[in-house]
Write a protein that binds this DNA or RNA. Structure first.
Length: 241
RNA sequence: UAUAUUGGCCUC
């Protein structure tokens, strides 16, 4: 079973679904029973090939579904913007007593962020934290990015706080988003403070944060501050640009 | 076996 499934997985990743199904048929003929993993692989294969309908059909025919089956379908729906369907599955899981994990929330949150349904995304982050699940930085980043671009830096900072409290470590992307957001709101001191905080917690600055902050400071005619940032960066071995 | 258009400038 495992070797057949591996071959099916390979074809699915190449987008060769017909071949994958051929192996499945061969498998059944030889008397091997496909298991849940085999079906989950196919579900994902159909979704990734852009055929969510077909995945849905298979999902409906499957006798049992585990967390991976649900998460795979949820991701498939989210990727094509069908967040209502994804939510429907979330509810179905809930009824069955299944608990979503980081993968499930990640799929849902990026789905909502793509649709700019930031409120829903924030709600899910809260729900996730409520369950004691520690999210990944990128999950927060996409939400923080959306909120910052709308100019709601106060809310962004609140979420940032919750993020850290929950044990999720911000990365360079997180800081870039927030630093740039503050710059756009002309809150230069906050931006500078975040930059220092970033260094303090051992988060490495890169040329993106560097140029974002320095160019914003320059535009604001804060040349002294810009210089001081440049000096810090040079001391860290950055090439000037 | 499932989650990563998450960042500045430039270009478009």
């Amino acid at each position: 079973v495992a070797s057949y499934t591996t071959v099916i997985l390979g074809y699915c990743r190449e987008g060769m679904l017909d071949e994958a199904l051929g192996i499945l048929a061969e498998m059944v003929e030889s008397g091997e029973e496909p298991n849940l993993v085999t079906f989950n692989v196919l579900l994902d294969g159909f979704c990734k090939a852009g055929d969510v309908k077909r995945a849905e059909g298979l999902f409906g025919k499957m006798e049992d579904h585990d967390l991976v089956s649900y998460t795979t379908m949820i991701d498939g729906y989210c990727k094509v913007g069908q967040t209502e369907e994804a939510i429907r599955l979330m509810n179905e899981m809930h009824v069955k007593g299944m608990v979503p994990n980081v993968y499930t929330y990640s799929a849902m949150i990026s789905g909502f962020c793509q649709k700019n349904s930031l409120g829903e995304a924030v709600r899910l982050l809260e729900e996730m934290r409520g369950r004691g699940i520690v999210g990944k930085a990128f999950m927060y980043n996409s939400v923080l990015d959306g909120i910052s671009k709308v100019g709601d830096l106060d809310q962004a900072m609140q979420i940032f706080e919750k993020m850290r409290e929950s044990g999720c470590k911000p990365d360079t992307f997180t800081y870039t988003i927030l630093i740039y957001g503050h710059c756009m709101k002309a809150r230069m001191n906050e931006a500078i403070a975040l930059f220092h905080e970033m260094l303090q917690i051992g988060c490495k600055p890169d040329n993106v944060v560097a140029s974002a902050l320095v160019s914003c400071l320059s535009k604001a005619s804060m040349h002294k501050e810009a210089k001081s940032i440049i000096h810090i960066l040079l001391a860290k071995g950055f090439s000037p640009d």
